[in-house]
Amino acid sequence: MKEVRQRLAGEVVFVSILLLISAFMLWQSYKISGFSSLSSAGAFPMAATFAMVVSGILIWFQTQRSKAAVAETGESYPALFRRQITPGIVVTFVLAVLGYAIALEPLGFVLASFLYLMIAIWLLGSRNIGKNLLASVASMVGIYVVFKTAFSVVLPQGTLLQAMVKGTPYAGWLP
């Protein structure tokens, strides 16, 4: 049943980091109440982190034993990692989401989402601007209507925009 998994680039490093974090969290859990009592506040976190450390050590040895990923001719280890785990599209996409999260408060839901959609759809390879614009506008209208009618969800209104239109006749126009 269990096939031998091939090790991917960076797997040993990742597992080692997990193991280090587990050990650190075990120490942090110990600091909550030490061994003062078996039913103390720290007992359960210690048990959980202990399980993490033990299974982490097992995983570390399993990973060491598994076959390493085969690099294609001349491909360096970091290049292999970039191809298998963090291809450009994944990195740029995460950065775009990060940008969206930052923009959400100042620009407000509608504007930030619209910009994000335009950028993300383009990034993911759909280069027809007209089609992208149509898809973004249509989705935004759809989402906005559903959120405002069906789900009474509070959406960020945009602090920056509010500050800009404050006192002007356009103040009531913001969605």
């Binding site: 969206y100 993300a120 959120f147």
Partner: peptide, 22 residues
């Protein structure tokens, strides 16, 4: 390319909406 960004928007709003906390 259209579907995935949309899921992300819905996820973000979902996360935000719990406590209205960015």
């Amino acid at each position: 390319p259209i579907l995935l960004p949309l899921i992300l928007i819905l996820s973000s709003v979902g996360a935000y909406a719990i406590n209205n906390n960015p």
